[in-house]
Design a protein around this nucleic acid. Structure first.
Length: 208
DNA sequence: ACATTAATTGTGT
DNA sequence: ACACAATTAATGT
């Protein structure tokens, strides 16, 4: 674990901070499909991603789930930070997209480090900015893009997080994340295939 | 190896 | 959106 931590964060945090993290924090392994955080849960730790990826969902008016963004190695969840600081309950649900592990940092330490380490402050600040930007992007997509652009975007994001052109998801699961119906996904996917952008197979999709 | 079932995907209305 | 056809994977015998 020390190696993984250093590989991912060595260029962001100074050595003394890395050591403190190693001392105080607990590591948490998760498997694909695990619910990391659920709605209305109290957050007592702040997560730092080591490996794998997690998707952040928001529940919609009609029992629908809508994907906000993915987080991966080197990221943290801005939502959970906000919950930590404000002592609030979670407004979102976090589900593991792949197997992986993360580091749990107690709220007290997180606050302490904000004053103690400039690199930590920068990290938290930057994470906030990045998440906010991503949220704006997805909001733009929701408001102004049609479904095939959203879908293409989704596929690109996914291939990024598992560093593979093979996306192993069923049309149904994709439809869930984008909060639409499976048939719509199937039709758009087929259109994309005809345009030569992707290759369609059973239970997985290949980007070209 | 074969038949049966379930899951995934394609298409027409 | 719905219904159903077609195709493929999974399971039991």
């Amino acid at each position: 674990m020390k190696n993984t931590l250093q590989n991912t964060y060595n260029f962001i945090f100074e050595g003394s901070l890395i050591n403190e993290i190693l001392e105080i924090s607990k590591i948490h392994d998760f498997k694909e499909g695990d619910i990391i955080i659920d709605f209305n849960e109290n957050i007592k730790n702040m997560p730092l991603m080591l490996t794998g990826a997690i998707k952040i969902l928001r529940e919609d008016f009609d029992e629908g789930e809508l994907l906000l963004y993915f987080i991966e190695k080197g990221d943290t969840c801005a939502m959970s930070m906000q919950c930590c600081l404000g002592n609030a309950k979670s407004e979102i649900r976090a589900i593991a997209e792949t197997d992986g592990q993360l580091i749990l940092i107690p709220v007290a330490k997180m606050n302490e480090w904000l004053g103690k380490y400039a690199t930590w402050r920068n990290f938290v600040f930057n994470s906030y900015n990045n998440r906010l930007k991503e949220m704006l992007t997805t909001i733009d997509h929701l408001a102004f893009m049609n479904m095939d652009e959203r879908l293409l975007n989704y596929l690109l994001e996914k291939s990024k997080i598992n560093t593979s052109n093979q996306i192993k998801k069923t049309h149904q699961e994709i439809a869930y994340d984008l909060n639409t119906s499976r048939v719509v996904i199937s039709r758009i996917l087929k259109a994309l295939e005809n345009k030569g952008k992707i290759k369609l197979n059973r239970a997985y999709i290949e980007l070209l």
